[in-house]
């Protein structure tokens, strides 16, 4: 059985010209016929087996983070099916620590939110502190941390919550090379334990040593997925070709690709409300009758 499966997954964002259009759409009372849409992901399908390490590459804005957010179940796909057999943990640069609390308390808080019990937290705490390696700062509020310290602490906590699917979204690019190596060692350890890892990075070098297969997303579409050697080769070839273009050509290429991500959605006529819906609406209105009667009684001083 596949550990993670994407079946024709798309993520579409409506592009509103005005903030008020969004509200009208929400209440589904908008009269305007069409909406401009942006396809952050379009028709992505892939399968990942248990214990695989998958690299995700692509240019800025190509949809890497959207994939990682869907994997982590932070956002829902607009269409398509996502099957995930296991617990995911997303490690992103924005570690989500509470700035006013110190390191210890943040460890407590985050582990708690990951669903660890008090005993489990006490058990992993020393190894988190050891891994983060931020010395005396562990007693300081997180707002006094450098950005490197913050991401180190965030990373240390996330890897100790025992997920079986890890999603690493460019988290390693902040730390220095010593810490990056330490993380890669930890990743290696996870790999030995047979955990599934998604690794999102710009660095083809890190990916080469570390991943089994590579997935290349290109302006919302799956360009290439397969053995790392082939895909990374293609990707490097593409970036080299892209880099040698003149500024003008680069701009043109980008515009051309982006244009394909925009579509205009004709508003489908709303289906006629079926009977059941009508009855629920009626029932909802009926709930207010007792309230109105009681309110009237109170106002009249019964």
């Amino acid at each position: 059985m596949a550990k993670v499966e994407f079946k024709n997954v798309s993520k579409v964002y409506d592009m509103y010209a005005k903030q008020s259009d969004k509200l009208l759409d929400l209440l589904s009372i908008r009269s305007k016929k069409s909406t401009k849409q942006f396809w952050a992901l379009r028709d992505i399908s892939f399968e990942v087996n248990d214990g695989e390490t998958i690299g995700i590459v692509g240019l800025n804005g190509s949809g890497k983070s959207t994939i990682s957010n869907i994997l982590a179940q932070v956002i829902q796909p607009s269409s398509g099916e996502v099957t995930i057999n296991g617990v995911t943990s997303l490690i992103a640069i924005s570690a989500g620590l509470n700035n006013n609390l110190n390191g210890y308390e943040n460890i407590d808080l985050k582990c708690m939110m990951h669903g660890l019990t008090v005993e489990e937290i006490e058990a992993v705490k020393p190894s988190i502190i050891d891994f983060a390696d931020i010395g005396e700062h562990i007693n300081q509020p997180v707002k006094n941390y450098s950005s490197g310290m913050r991401s180190r602490l965030g990373f240390a906590i996330a890897v100790h919550t025992d997920p079986d699917i890890l999603i690493i979204d460019e988290a390693l690019s902040v730390g220095d090379s010593t810490f990056a190596n330490k993380c890669l060692l930890k990743m290696e350890e996870f790999k030995q334990q047979g955990k599934t890892i998604f690794f999102i990075s710009h660095s083809a070098k890190q990916m080469k040593t570390f991943c089994d297969r590579v997935l290349w997303v290109h302006y919302g579409r799956l360009k290439n997925f397969g053995a790392k050697k082939r895909v990374l080769g293609n990707y490097v070839e593409f970036t080299e070709w892209f880099d040698q273009l003149s500024e003008e050509e680069k701009k043109k290429y980008k515009q051309n690709m982006l244009r394909k991500q925009y579509t205009v959605q004709e508003k489908t006529k709303r289906k006629q409300a079926d009977k059941k819906n009508k009855w629920t609406a009626f029932g909802h209105l009926a709930m207010f009758i007792p309230l109105l009667v009681l309110g009237a009684l109170i106002v009249l001083g019964y």
Binding site: A72, Q73, V74, V87, S89, L90, G96, M113, H114, G115
Partner: peptide, 9 residues
């Protein structure tokens, strides 16, 4: 919500 949606919470 940004913080907690990444967790089972």
């Amino acid at each position: 919500v940004n913080l907690v949606s990444k967790m089972n919470f």
